[in-house]
Write a protein that binds this DNA or RNA. Structure first.
Lengths: 261, 261
DNA sequence: AAGTGGTCTAGACCACTGA
DNA sequence: CAGTGGTCTAGACCACTTG
C-alpha cells in the first residue's frame, strides 16, 4: 500500500518516523517525546514542521500534548464500555454514571435554553418531531463525568414554555426524565442512530476539546406509549470517552466479552 | 457560554467570523470562499493565520478545501441512513449496497492478509476470541461505494490458513460470508460496539481522507449458533458516509422517521 | 526562572487545477 | 498560463507549567 510516494511531505515522513518509534517502544506509552526544539534539531527541520507532524499524531490520538509540559505517548485507550440491551431498552448515557470511577462534579447540567430559530439543527428536530420550529422548545446540557465534560446534549420537545428550573443554566438533573415529567407522560425509544463527526466550534468549547475531535453522535426520537413523538435528542460524545455496546446473546460465550480495549 | 475570552487567538476569532458569514448566508452553501491571499489582505493577517482558521472549519466539516481550486462551503451533510433492526440481526454494512445510489466499482475488496503479530489490534482480537495471536488469521479489506472507499475492515478468525482467494489483494466478495463458508459454519452476532476515533495514518491512506478524520468504529464478535466465538471484526467507516439507525418500534409513529439530515 | 508548547509574521518555493 | 492551496524556513513573542 504505497506508503511513500516520492513527494510525501516532510512532516508526514517525520510523523511516520515518530509513529515507528512509538510502535517499536522507543517511546513507550506514557513517555514524553523529545521537545519540539530537540526534534527540530535532531531531524534538521524547522520547528513548525515538527509541530505539523506532531499535530497529525495528536489528531490520530497517538500522543497527547500538554501545554507547558510536553508531548506524551498515549496508552492504548482504555475506554469505558457501556453495556446496553436494545431489547430491554436500557440504553441511555445516564446509566453510565454507575460505570465510571470517582467523580465529584458528575452529572448533567443545563447550559442554556436557546430559542428555536431556523438553524439547521432546529429544522432537523422539527422534521423529526413532525412539527414546525416555532412549536418547539429546546434545552442544551453538558454531561460531566470524572470532572470532565464528556457529552454535549441538545433536547427538543413540542411544547413549552418549559419549567423555569429546567432552563436555568447550572441546573443539575436528568433532562430526559425531567422533560418527561414536565410533559406528564412516559417515554419510550422510537429510534436511535449512531454517527461520527468532528467537533464544531461550539461543541469544542463545550467539551473542552480541539475543534475536529472525533465525536460519537447519538441522536433519536422518543415517543409516548401510543407512538406520539415527544422528544428529539442529539448527543455529541467525546469519542475517546465512550463506546456503546450491543449484546445480541443472552449469555456471554467463551470469549471474554467486550472489555476495555 | 464565554465565547471570547480576551486571549482568544486570532485564528479562532477569524474562524468564528467566517462561520458567522456562512451561517448568515454571506457565503452560501456551495460558494467559494475568498482565496487565502484575499482573506489575508481583508483581515490584515498573515496567510498562515488564515490557513489555520480555514483548517479549523475544514476539520469541523464546515468547508471543503479543493487544492488548486478553492475553498467551498459544504452543503448541510446529506447522510446515508442505514436502517437496521437488532432483533432480526439484519445489521451489516454489506446491506448498504442496495441503499446507495449508482456505483460502478462498488463492493468489498481484499487489501491484504497481514501476518498476526503482537500489535495492539492483534492482541485485542486474540483477547476477544479467547485465543492467542498465534492461532489467528487476519484479512483486511476496503468497502467501496459510489466510487469512494467508505470503510476499512479488519477480520480475525481463529483458524488458518485461509483459502488463497480470500487473501489475494483485489479479491472481491463478502468477507463475512466467505469466512463463514471457509469455516463451514453459520455465524450469529454476539455483540457489536460503536465508537468514534480519528483516522490514523494507515486508515487515512486506505480511505483517502485526511489524518484525524472522524471515523465511526464498529467492532464486535460473531459466533457459531452454540456460542463459540469465531470472528472478530473491526470496521472504520468514514463518519460522513454512514449512520447506523436502530428502530425500537415495529411501526413508525407520526414522525417522518430518521431520514437524511 | 527555565522549559514547554501556542501564536504570529515574513517570505519563499512548490504542486495542483482549470482555462 | 494564472490562480489556488500545500509545504517549508526563519525568527519573534507569548502563555502555561513546574521547580
Amino acid at each position: 500500500m504505497a506508503t511513500n510516494t516520492p513527494n510525501t511531505p516532510l512532516y508526514r515522513r517525520l510523523a511516520r518516523q515518530l509513529q515507528e518509534r512509538i510502535d517499536a517502544g522507543t517511546y513507550p506509552a506514557g513517555a514524553r517525546l523529545p521537545s519540539e526544539p530537540e526534534l527540530s534539531a535532531e531531524f534538521g527541520v524547522h520547528r513548525l514542521t515538527v509541530r505539523q507532524a506532531v499535530a497529525e499524531l495528536e489528531r490520530a490520538a497517538v500522543v497527547e500534548i500538554r501545554r507547558g509540559v510536553g508531548t506524551f505517548v498515549r496508552p492504548p485507550a482504555v475506554r469505558v464500555s457501556i453495556a446496553v440491551d436494545p431489547r430491554s431498552q436500557r440504553f441511555d448515557l445516564g446509566s453510565v454514571h454507575a460505570a465510571l470511577p470517582d467523580g465529584t462534579e458528575d452529572g448533567e447540567f443545563v447550559v442554556a435554553a436557546p430559542p428555536v430559530t431556523g438553524s439547521a439543527e432546529d429544522e432537523e428536530a422539527a422534521r423529526q418531531l413532525g412539527r414546525t420550529p416555532g412549536e418547539l422548545s429546546r434545552v442544551d446540557s453538558v454531561i460531566r463525568l470524572g470532572g470532565r465534560a464528556r457529552a454535549a446534549c441538545s433536547y427538543w420537545v413540542p411544547f413549552g414554555p418549559l419549567p423555569a428550573e429546567l432552563t436555568r443554566p447550572g441546573h443539575a438533573g436528568n433532562l430526559v426524565l425531567d422533560l418527561a415529567r414536565a410533559a406528564g407522560v412516559e417515554l419510550e425509544y422510537d429510534w436511535r442512530a449512531f454517527g461520527a463527526i468532528g467537533a464544531d466550534l461550539a461543541d469544542a468549547e463545550l467539551l473542552g476539546v480541539p475543534v475536529g475531535t472525533p465525536l460519537l453522535v447519538r441522536e433519536g426520537v422518543s415517543c409516548t406509549p401510543d407512538g406520539a413523538p415527544l422528544l428529539y435528542v442529539r448527543r455529541r460524545i467525546d469519542g475517546s470517552s465512550a463506546r456503546f455496546v450491543l449484546h445480541f446473546r443472552e449469555h456471554p460465550p467463551q470469549g471474554s466479552g467486550p472489555s476495555g480495549s
